[in-house]
Design a protein around this nucleic acid. Sequence first.
RNA 1: GGCCUCGUAGUACAAUGGAUAGUAUAAGGGCCUCCGAAGCCCCAGAUCCAGGUUCGAUUCCUGGCGAGGCCA
Length: 587
Amino acid sequence: SLQKSTIESLSALYNQSFTEKDFQINQTKPEFEGDYTVVMFSLVKSLKLAPDAIGNQLGEHLIKNYPQFFTAYNIIKGFLNLTVADAYWQSLLQKNYNDICYGKKAMNGKKVMVEYASPNTNKPLHLGHLRNIFLGWSVAEILKANGYEVVKSCIVNDRGIHICKSMIAWQLFANGATPQTTGTKGDHFVGDYYVKFNDVYKEQVADLIAAGKMKDTAEKEAPIMKATQQMLLDWEDGKPEVMELWKTMNGWVYEGFDVTYNSIGADFDKVYYESNTYLLGKDIVQQGMDKKVFYQKDDSSIWIDLTADGLDEKIVQRSDGTSVYITQDIGLALQKYEQYKIDQSIYVIGNEQNYHMKVLKLICEKLGMPNAENIHHLSYGMVELTSGKMKSREGTVVDADDIVEEMLSTSQQHTEELGKVKDFNPDELKTLYNTIGLGAMKFYLLRVDPKKTMVFNPAESIDFHGFTGPFVQYTYARIQSILRKVDTPINAYETSGELFKGEKDVIVCAEQYPAALEQAAAEQNPSVIANYVFNLAKIFNSFYAEHSIANAENEEKKQLRLKIASLTANVLKSGMSLLGIAVPERM
RNA sequence: GGCCUCGUAGUACAAUGGAUAGUAUAAGGGCCUCCGAAGCCCCAGAUCCAGGUUCGAUUCCUGGCGAGGCCA
């Protein structure tokens, strides 16, 4: 390859061994002559030579010894710009234009678990969950493409005081209503009772304060809160009628979640339920005591002291012997490792849990657990609105089902206005609206670096122009249209001859795809792929506007451009699939 | 109060310490008798402030100012 020949040349010239880390390679900026740039500065110190001297020697050597790769060079201010032989690009094109696995790696024998989504069963999914779900799903696909075996998992938070709140509210106010009798989606139905609880609770607290109680006291003594706490105790005791209600209401929620998961294409290989895992980790507390990693306070609560690591003291078991979140998380982390023998355990969780996840990993390390090093928090930023944060109290939370619905109807509207698929039957249309609407939404949420807080602008999210999913889909559909219409088939012979700039630009960009896949996996960052496919589509569109494929100057050029179109389509389809986005043959 | 993120055109996003800081939108001007105009071309516009390290800083360090998060 280009890089390998550079390393070999350097080693031969200066009689020492170099690696790819010893120097920097970039794509040459468009304003300079050349395709491939080696930055000399990092070599200056070790070789004790002037940048231009190294550049000249290296440039000469490369052209002399690797004429199949390099044909010319120039040096500008310490940058060695090399012109890559057109034959190199031609053979790259020939090798990959029809390879649907281009850029993907063979299995590497490593297994990774990606835990994502992880909802509570007391309210429906919202925009933040969508970022989480798209991110988790996409990272799983990106890791698969890089040779990992991936287990997608989900921990459902199906128990606790917040779950009991919607149960109590249903008991008190529903009069036996169900999702079926009201025609409401199950998760929304249950979520409505969670809201109802909070309304009633607020009223009761206000009444108690009006009757002269202090705020703290009022919050504790509100009848609906006391009933909820009793219900939690009954649940823990396994009281039959409470268990029954709990199962029924969670069942409604799961039915609703399944509808949403289906519509957005999310799936899991393994689902954990907190009701099964919340007692995990008890024995670990004992081990921690034995190893003197934990210590007991006078009230018999158990703690770990992390002040030496710059954190604080953290409770791992309450004085009444009940466990806390972190303890179950340790237990589950160990269980995942034992069940699946995973090499890495990725948690897709919002950045408000950064501290919690740091503590989790640190405790696992201190306990000497075999999986401690493999725990990785894929922390993502909040989704904010142009008006600021989403707040459930102010009713500004964007519901997942609503936004999906809006994307679908917008894609329908655009499609109808353009009127290009009037011959589609209703099923084909429905599929197309899904492809475009979901494509727009997934692309919008994935194109930003996951770590960063992002702004959700409703007007921009339904825009289908520019840096969007539909732009990339359109480019793909247009290529397919050309390939369908062209009279001569693509033949198997490698093309040759000089490349026009537009032609070369597309191939040069396509060459970067494997590197983009690697980077996306290394950073666990789908935005690398989103940026890449957009860029490729853009470069192809420029090429296409300038050069005719069907009416090329000659048969050789026609074959060349057909292959360029085919390669582009393959890479776009492959890259988009890693984002969970389908590409239509027509749109 | 302690700890952790983040400050880039009007707006939203890019840039392993590298060349004149990219892209999209919104504003202005062009391009369909020819492979799909959900497209292409042209034109403008930005690194919060002050120091430091470096041949070179949007990037690394220190201190401000501003936004967000977590822990009591």
